[in-house]
Amino acid sequence: METLFDQELVVINMGLEDFAKTLKERGTRVMHVRWQPPAQGDADLLSLLDKLK
């Protein structure tokens, strides 16, 4: 951990793409993963999806 910031930073960003964009603009190597909570975290929809498995 102590040596982490002595190395080139390579970032995997999940979710909000703006974080990846900002790092990329500063020259950091970034891999963005598009991810959202299932059904936007809506409990009612998740229970419907559960019924339809």
């Binding site: 959202q36 299932p38 059904a39 929809l45 419907l48 999806l49 339809l52």
Partner: peptide, 8 residues
């Protein structure tokens, strides 16, 4: 339909 809703 399920995937559309789940993945948004």
């Amino acid at each position: 339909v399920r995937k559309v809703v789940e993945k948004n």
